[in-house]
Design a protein around this nucleic acid. Structure first.
Length: 507
RNA sequence: GGUCCCUUCGUCUAGUGGUUAGGACACAUGGUUUUCAUCCAUGAAACAGGAGUUCGAUUCUCCUAGGGACUACCA
């Protein structure tokens, strides 16, 4: 293969929200393109007019934007190889479909879908597979079996037709897949795929993708493993069109599998396992499909976790930025086998990226929720609070439950902690403690601690017992970061208030 | 059914013709900690099976088994 410019495309079909497997395909295309200084193209494959879904294209664009994969050429961005939407390229395909018929690589067929359905049903009843292929095509209604006159007659009468690929008999087709190595097929088991349909004057995926990849000068086709079986058809199409010498190189990515059970990851798995399968939320008739963005994931965490599903750099590094991924990515290190999606590890990736974020950035993110809860707090204070708990949350959305006591007094007290820590001399001690707290000269963690410690010693009580009770009074439970720092941050007045409230309310 | 692809701890994976088969998530135990978490340490945990090639195979070949994808006028 000559050293031509790397140009790859991500070619989703606008039939609904982008599946996470599709996102991973996009990511690997993007990484490959950027690694080689090439172009990343987004092509909308809407050749199935019956499956078009409103808003899906916009969803794809928004997803790519959120994930940080800027598109070099596409419907929105434009480019010299447009249009980038297949439904706007109608005229282009017809010409090549005709060419294939003229050169004997394809033929017209008039069999209706219902006729074919009937044949399939009949075959199934007899437990033999029906296939529109070299064995059956001569007995069906097509330009191979019918006379020229009859073909012309049917065409003139406006009868719907399709153009089918005439699969050669017993030909070995070999490909050198970048992730799988040599793969060989024999055309004897392949059928005559529909390439073009008069019903909507559009090609099917197979013809459209070959024509577009050629015209758009795509150098590498990186796509999911589900396409592997159609590789021989595609190669033959390049051959039939006379483009085999500039045919792109293929790379078929392993599938992303369900966390448990069998098969590839589907929308239902997300519902069952409580994790997102889509980058962004998507409104369904009967509910909503969860998105990573709305579930609180950082785009860089999603990119990171997806990159490691089926690829690794061969080192023990697991956390990467997009730039690092671009540097390190090679198709050669893509795995062959399917990767099972692990929701736990997905969370871990988010946590790791969260920990690495600046406190200021997290604070700003967290401020949104604080405002919703009616707390107008300076960013400095929020930063301090966030810094103390960031290592114990996976998501920004978990920050509140870990820091609520910084912003408001506890309204309830964890009964288990009450039972264990609020007993004996403790309540009385807490009452006696408040005037002592009032006397702390310098309201800093160290001084507060010294004061309390002195009191504990004077009363000969257990340090742990008292501190836990004190914690219960300030935070309402047995959790949270360093207690003295909490006291320092919420201030003397508030601390004393909370101790008094605890004495009153816990009984 | 047919075609093609795949197979290292539960999961994601590294790895080499000779390794104590490494890491991460999850799990368990212990330690630190005023609690929980964090953190640290430790542990349990894998080469699907069978032949063959070889002095020696997890690694190479073949077979079997298992899994997956595809098999539409969908992509």
């Amino acid at each position: 293969m000559t050293t031509r410019k790397v140009r790859v495309r991500f070619a989703p079909s606008p039939t609904g929200p982008l599946h996470i497997g599709g996102v991973r395909t996009a990511l690997f295309n993007y990484l490959f393109a950027k690694k080689h200084g090439g172009d990343f193209i987004l092509r909308i494959e809407d050749t199935d007019s019956t499956r078009f879904v409103e808003g899906a294209e916009e969803y794809i664009n928004e997803s790519m934007e959120w994930l940080g994969m800027p598109i070099d050429e596409g419907v929105k961005q434009g480019g010299e190889f447009g249009p980038y939407k297949q439904s706007e390229r109608r005229e282009i395909y017809k010409k090549y479909a005709d060419q294939l018929v003229e050169t004997g690589w394809a033929y017209y067929a008039f069999d209706t879908p219902s006729e074919l359905d009937a044949l399939r049903a009949k075959a199934e009843a007899e437990k033999v597979p029906f296939s529109y292929d070299m064995h059956t095509r001569n007995g069906l209604k097509n330009s191979l079996a019918l006379s020229d006159d009859e073909v012309k007659q049917r065409m003139d009468a406006g009868e719907p037709w399709v153009i089918r690929f005439k699969m050669p008999e017993n030909t070995e087709v070999q490909t050198n897949d970048m992730v799988r190595g040599s793969v060989t097929f024999n055309t004897a088991t392949l059928d005559d795929k529909v390439l073009y349909k008069s019903a909507d004057n559009l090609p099917t995926y197979h013809l459209a993708n070959i024509v577009d990849d050629h015209l758009m000068e795509i150098s590498h086709v990186i796509r999911g493993e589900e396409w592997l079986p159609s590789v021989p058809l595609h190669i033959l199409l390049y051959r039939g069109l006379g483009w085999e010498d500039t045919m792109p190189q293929f790379a078929h990515l392993p599938l992303i599998l369900k966390p448990t059970g069998k098969g590839k990851l589907s929308k239902r798995d997300g519902d069952k396992g409580g994790f997102p399968v889509f980058p962004l939320n998507w409104q369904l008739e009967d509910g909503i499909a969860m998105g990573y963005r709305e579930s609180g994931y950082f785009p860089e965490a999603v990119v990171n976790l997806l990159a490691l599903l089926g690829w690794n750099p061969g080192t023990e590094q697991e956390l990467f930025s997009m730039d690092e991924l671009i540097q390190l990515f090679t198709i050669e290190r893509v795995n062959k086998s399917g990767a099972r999606f692990d929701p736990d590890k997905a969370k871990w990736f988010n946590q790791q990226h969260l920990i690495r974020k600046e406190d200021a950035e997290l604070a700003t993110l967290f401020q949104v929720e604080l405002k919703e809860r009616g707390h107008e707090i300076g960013n400095g204070f929020v930063q301090e609070a966030v810094a103390m708990v960031k290592e114990r949350v996976n998501f920004v959305s978990e920050l509140w439950e870990q820091t609520a006591f910084f912003f408001e007094a506890p309204s309830t007290y964890d009964p288990k902690v009450v039972k264990k820590r609020w007993k004996g001399d403790v309540p009385a001690f807490m009452t006696e403690l408040t005037p002592e707290l009032d006397k702390v000269e310098n309201w800093k963690a160290d001084d507060i601690k010294a004061t309390i410690a002195a009191q504990i010693e004077a009363k000969e009580l257990g340090f742990g017992l008292v501190m836990n009770a004190f914690r219960l009074a300030l935070v309402g439970g047995g959790f949270g970061p360093d207690l003295m720092t909490i006291a320092e941050m919420i201030g003397r007045e508030e601390t004393i208030q909370r101790v008094k409230a605890a004495v009153e309310n816990i009984g």
